[in-house]
Computed example of a mutant assay.
Amino acid sequence: MPLTHLLTLALLQGLTEFLPISSSAHLILLPRLLDWPDQGLAFDVAVHVGTLSAVVLYFRHELWRMTRDWLGSLAGRGITAEARLAWFVLLGTVPVGLAGLLLKDWVGHALRLPLVIAAATLGFGLLLGLADWAGRRHRDEYSLGWRGVLAVGLAQALALIPGTSRSGATMTAGLAIGLTRESAARFSFLLSIPVIVLAGLLEVRDLAASPLAVDWTTLWLGALFSGLSAYACIHVFLRLIARLSMWPFVIYRFALGLALFAIYAP
């Protein structure tokens, strides 16, 4: 893979994985628009490892407390706020885990189409804008109950549709049930950890069955640059979102969706 392709795709994955604009849509569309060869499954695994490393590193202190108190809850030492949040993350992962196992092959083949991406980009962009405008934004992620967690989890399952955006769907649901923008984003990022792990394991399984040779230098560089860009993206996004609102991303989604319709509509 040429170095320019590697850097572009890795940085794009890192930036778009945690913004509400759909990383899968950009990674599908960019090679098509530029007539690049498919980057391959091994590269997809590598950049997912990079983004996973970034979110784990960024939230390392929260994850330590959540894991410690979650294990304590299993040992009968009571449910703290951190343990409850850990249970929320696990519960919120169930819908997308089930949907991924049942629908992965169908989604991967039937829905990776530019017009599907265009429609999802526009439709879920509209929902994000409505949730940001109408949401009460008075709660944090620790105040969620099981109904709210399942609502966010079900929204995350919809993100299997390319163009939806996993982070966009979960932030939309979080805002709709009253979370602040910062809390919706933090819960979305924490939810990404088990999802990226599950998706990565499925990709590793497929990769193990592939007879193709592995270019380890390309994979290490892809993981490094996707991780660096993802870490920077999380850091900046969480500091700016309260002032920016979600509307810059809504406008971007509308522009992208309309451009795709103009390019690919018959």
Rank of each mutant, 00 (worst) to 15 (best):
M1L: 11
H5R: 11
H5I: 14
H5C: 05
T8I: 14
T8H: 01
L12Q: 00
Q13C: 05
L19C: 00
P20G: 02
P20C: 01
I21L: 02
S22H: 02
S24P: 09
A25C: 10
I28W: 01
L29S: 04
L29M: 12
L29A: 05
P31K: 05
R32P: 01
R32D: 09
L34R: 14
P37M: 04
G40D: 08
L41Q: 02
L41P: 03
A42S: 12
F43G: 03
H48P: 07
G50P: 08
V55E: 08
V55S: 08
L57D: 10
Y58N: 02
H61C: 04
E62K: 11
E62M: 07
E62W: 14
E62N: 12
R65S: 15
R68N: 00
W70I: 02
L71D: 01
G72P: 01
L74T: 09
G76D: 06
G78M: 04
I79N: 11
I79M: 15
E82N: 13
E82Q: 11
A83P: 05
R84I: 06
L85K: 06
W87H: 15
F88Q: 15
V89Q: 05
V94Y: 10
G97A: 10
G97C: 00
L98M: 13
L103V: 10
L103R: 07
D105N: 14
V107D: 01
L111H: 07
R112Q: 14
P114I: 08
P114K: 08
A120H: 00
L122R: 07
G123P: 10
L127A: 12
L128P: 01
G129T: 00
A131E: 04
A134C: 10
H138L: 12
R139W: 12
L144K: 05
G145K: 06
G145I: 06
W146T: 09
A151Q: 09
A151C: 08
V152W: 00
G153L: 09
A155K: 04
L158G: 09
I161Q: 06
G163W: 00
S165Q: 06
S165P: 09
R166D: 00
S167V: 02
G168R: 06
M171Q: 13
A173K: 03
G174M: 08
L179N: 05
S183P: 06
A184C: 06
F187G: 01
S188C: 07
F189P: 01
F189E: 04
F189M: 07
I193W: 05
P194C: 07
V195P: 08
V195T: 15
V197A: 12
V197C: 10
L198Q: 09
L202K: 13
V204K: 07
V204T: 11
R205T: 05
L207F: 02
A208W: 15
A208H: 12
D215A: 13
W216N: 04
T218A: 14
L219S: 04
A223G: 12
L224V: 13
S226N: 08
S229Y: 00
Y231E: 05
A232V: 11
C233E: 02
H235R: 15
V236I: 14
F237N: 04
F237T: 09
I241G: 05
A242R: 15
S245W: 11
F249M: 03
F249K: 01
V250A: 00
Y252Q: 01
L256Y: 13
G257E: 03
L258V: 07
A259V: 07
F261R: 06
Y264Q: 03
A265F: 15
A265V: 07
P266L: 02
